[in-house]
Structure formats: C-alpha cells, structure tokens
C-alpha cells in the first residue's frame, strides 16, 4: 500500500482500468505527452500508447461529442475537460445526448463515459478556473455527478464511475489534489455510486458536505468536539443521484443539520438537501437547517477568493446558531 495524494490516486485508478479494460480510452487536451495540466494522466501514454491515451484538438464540444459517439460503439472513454469552467460549450452534448442516449433509444444504445474535470477555488487560479457549478449537472436527469473528497475515495469512486454503464460527471476538487495523502491499495475495489459516506458519527449535529469543503467541515467538527458538541460528518460524494436515506436517517437522529458547499447558495445542491430534510425530518428537527455556502455572486478573483469560500469560522458560526437555536 502506497501513501498518495488525490491526483495520484486518480492516475492510479485510470491506469488500473486501462490495464483491466481494453475498451477504455483516456482523452482530452494535453493528457498525453504532457500528462495533463495537473499531471492526473502522467505516464499513462508511455504505458498504454497514443491510441489509448489521446491528445485531442482544443475543442470541448467535440471532446464530449466524440466521446459520446465512441461510447455508442461500446468503448469506454474517460474524457478530461481541463477545468470545469471550460465545459460549458459541451453542455449541449451532455444534456441533449449523453444524458439521453439510453432513454431515447430505449436501451439500444448507451453512453458509458466519464467526463473528468477539476473544479473549485482556493488554489489562486486565474478567472474562470475556480467556480463550483455541480448543481448545473445535478439538475440533468440521466447524468450521475460524483465528487471525491479523499485519495482513497477518489480511487474507488473513479473506478466505479468508469465501470458504470451510464455517463458520469466526475468533478475533482483541485484544492485538495495534493493537500492530503493517505495509503491507497491498488486492489481494484470500487465504491457504490449512490451512497453517502459517514466520516464521523455523532449525536448532536449533522454536518453535510462534499469535495474540498469536507476538509473544512472535519476541522469544524474537531473544534465543536472541544465544545462538547458531537458532530456526525457526512461526505455526500455522489450529488446525483443523492443518497437521501443516509442524510435523512442522520438528521432524524441528531435533529440538526448544517450543509456546507462551495457553490453559490441559490438553487445549489444544498437547497435540494434542505428541502428533503424538511420533508422527512420535520418533527425531529430542533432547529432550522442552515447552509454555509459560496455567496450568490460571481466567484471573486484570487485575491478575495478565500472571503467567498466557506471557512472553518463560518461553519462554526452556523453550527453554533443551530446548536443554540431557541435558547
């Protein structure tokens, strides 16, 4: 077992499946010779050759559209969009085709592809490189949206995404690409694709998050423990389809919930979770469900980005409001 970062674990998962699945292709801008701008595909071309690790022309619509065509022929393309902020030209292909190919042919054709894209703020990147727009994809029936928050879950969720027979948007929180290391065993074991992960068990408050914000949320939980507030921490991981059952069970138990995400609040995935909790946990709730999120503004450039993103302090402030509600 090797200690590795998330970006190394992602590389390992692709290498594992390139070995195991002769129909798997890795494609995108700069993924071959260069190994990807974040080095997520480093050395894959050397090992698997240019016909399976493919440098494409610079055209996102074509990358996704071509991957769809390949997938209808039974290939399993894993296409990288260099940054989430550049996926939008391909939205028509994702919404009108990738998400619908199985349905509109009643199963005659399908679309077993993965679109990987780094996303989120906190690494002082240029304009358009730091947003979190997972809710755009989560709103589309037929797409799965998966966001890992640790090296091990990145490895196992990417394996699951690749093996899944339907299109998966795999969003990689680049702020924690290299921030955390942990042992990852290259055993080819995948995780389920519609299950939340309970990282800490607790009885007083449920903290719900995903992606890079899981790190801040865990830190907040540590602080709260010192206050004798025992938090259940849940990594949603698959924002679509949602594992509502786990979320509902936890909040019915603790009676309190704070949802933490980097994306803007309005129509965010947090809103869907909050609505679900009030539908199912109303009589168990001891306080309103709070959200700690990015503001409903344009993501500021790098000098102010940390003011925009949820911090441990903002999470603690919301948690204390919820804990002290009514007293």
């Amino acid at each position: 077992m090797t200690n590795m970062t998330m970006v190394e674990a992602i590389n390992l998962a692709m290498a594992h499946e390139l070995n195991a699945d002769p129909d798997l292709l890795v494609m995108g801008e700069d993924v071959g010779m260069n190994g990807g701008v974040f080095r997520a595909t480093v050395d894959l071309r050397k090992e698997f050759g240019r016909t399976r690790v493919i440098d494409t022309p610079l055209a996102e619509t074509m990358i996704v559209g071509t991957a769809i065509g390949m997938a209808t022929q039974g290939l399993h393309p894993v296409a990288e969009i260099q940054f989430m902020g550049f996926v939008y030209p391909a939205m028509e292909q994702l919404i009108c085709h990738a998400a619908r190919m199985r349905n509109r042919t009643r199963g005659r054709l399908s679309c077993p592809l993965v679109i990987r894209a780094p996303f989120g703020g906190g690494i002082h990147a240029p304009e358009h490189h730091s947003e979190s727009t997972e809710a755009l994809f989560a709103h589309i029936p037929g797409l799965r949206v998966v966001i890992p928050s640790s090296p091990l879950r990145a490895y196992r969720l990417l394996l699951a995404a690749i093996r899944n027979p339907d299109p998966v948007i795999f969003l990689e929180p680049k702020r924690i690409y290299r921030a955390v290391s942990q042992p990852v065993d290259d055993n080819g074991e995948a995780l389920p694709l519609d299950t939340c992960f309970t990282l800490r068990e607790g009885s007083d408050l449920t903290l719900i998050s995903w992606g890079a914000m899981v790190q801040e949320t865990l830190k907040a939980a540590d602080h709260l423990k010192q206050q004798n507030v025992h938090c259940e921490v849940i990594d949603v991981a698959t924002v679509s389809p949602l594992d509502r059952r786990t979320l509902i069970a936890s909040v019915c138990k603790t009676g309190r919930a704070v949802i933490v995400h980097e994306a803007p609040r309005h129509c965010g995935v947090g809103a869907e979770i909050a609505a679900t909790l009030q539908e199912h946990c109303l009589l168990d709730l001891k306080a309103p469900v709070k959200r700690v999120t990015g503001y409903d503004t344009i993501m500021p450039y790098l000098r102010q980005e940390l003011r925009y993103m949820p911090s441990v302090e903002r999470i603690l402030s919301a948690a204390n409001e919820v804990i002290n509600f009514g007293s």
Binding site: T61, M62, V64, G65, T66, A67, I68, G69, M70, A71, T72, Q73, G74, L75, P77, E92, Q93, C96, H97, R104, T105, L109
Partner: peptide, 21 residues
C-alpha cells in the same frame, strides 16, 4: 444513431463512431 434534432451535434457523435471504427 437516432434522429438528431439539436443542429450539428450529430457530427461530433459520428466523429466518435468513426474513431471507434
């Protein structure tokens, strides 16, 4: 492929099918 209504999107799919071939 099925009938494609969103204009020109089918060209990309065809390029993908041709890539697979």
């Amino acid at each position: 492929l099925p009938i494609c209504v969103p204009i020109a999107t089918q060209f990309c799919h065809a390029a993908g099918v041709a890539s697979a071939i």
